[in-house]
Design a protein around this nucleic acid. Structure first.
Length: 268
DNA sequence: GCCTCATGTTGAT
DNA sequence: TCAACCTGAGGCT
């Protein structure tokens, strides 16, 4: 569920349903009960995201900080009975938001928020984010670009799907050390993310296949990943590359399954 | 029912 | 580098 686009989308949905309203806050599961009681009945001022971190600002300088981790989810919809392990429920008479399985869920101060965001790299989904801040780190690192893209202190919001897809779209070898990546390649990666990620926010899934290369346009059967989006290489190990036909490769890189085309991706 | 996997991160070794 | 953590879905018996 969660790369940066998911959190920005959720922030928007939270603002739509809870922004400026008095919110009932509870912890059906019990693990957030004490903090929920402090927020209960107060007004949610605004929700926002930086990369994969989600912040809900309430009155009295109280911020609910959420990180979904790998398996967490935040379901927003009309009122419904609690189902499963719900860490936090936000509710009004019209809407409910249920948080399950988060990696982090805590009440934090403005100072703590500032400290957290200060450690994060620029987010392609934030207006005015500066790609040079990321380039300064990439340009002097010996780590592979596929690892640097996943490092949230270098760049925030990119996860395993976007890293594989943006490297494929720009024909870049995932193993290329950051210091050997051209500035032109980095600018291409950044502008591609700035173009792709808002589409993910809008649609709630990651679509990366260019219009002229869709299955219909290429005369091949539709193929959509389990996460709901249409992609070139992510989770397609062993299958034919849509562009050159060679087998999509996979290996573990930066503790995650990387997917790439060894023939198409040779740039640095 | 049991096992594996998942768009993530942290802390110990 | 590796285990741990949080939860649910899907595949298997």
């Amino acid at each position: 569920m969660p790369e940066g686009h998911t959190l920005h989308r959720l922030a928007g949905l939270l603002n739509d349903s809870f922004g400026g309203r008095s919110v009932r806050v509870s912890s059906p599961q019990g693990r957030f009960a004490a903090s929920a009681a402090l927020l209960d009945g107060t007004t949610m001022v605004a929700a926002w995201a930086h990369g994969k971190q989600l912040f809900c600002d309430f009155e009295h300088d109280r911020t609910l900080y959420i990180h979904l981790g790998l398996i967490g989810g935040l379901d927003i919809g009309p009122p419904a009975p609690v189902r499963g392990e719900v860490r936090v429920r936000l509710a009004t008479d019209d809407a409910v938001a249920d948080l399950r399985g988060p990696q982090a869920c805590a009440l934090v101060t403005p100072e703590e928020v500032a400290a957290m965001t200060a450690k994060l790299g620029p987010d392609p989904l934030q207006a005015g984010a500066d790609p040079e801040l990321a380039w300064a780190k990439i340009n002097r690192s010996g780590r592979p670009i596929a690892a640097l893209l996943m490092d949230q202190s270098v760049l925030s919001g990119v996860g395993n799907v976007y890293r594989a897809e943006v490297l494929f779209r720009n024909r870049i070898d995932p193993h290329r050390p950051g210091k050997q990546l051209s500035r032109r390649s980095w600018r291409a990666i950044w502008s591609d993310l700035v173009e792709l990620m808002p589409i993910g926010v809008r649609d709630g899934r990651i679509d990366t296949v260019r219009p002229e290369q869709t299955p219909e346009a290429m005369g091949r059967p539709p193929r959509v990943d389990d996460h709901g989006g249409e992609v070139y290489v992510y989770r397609r190990a062993g299958q034919a590359c849509f562009i050159c036909g060679s087998r999509v490769r996979t290996e573990v890189l930066a503790a995650r399954n990387l997917f790439w085309c060894g023939r198409c991706q040779r740039r640095g």
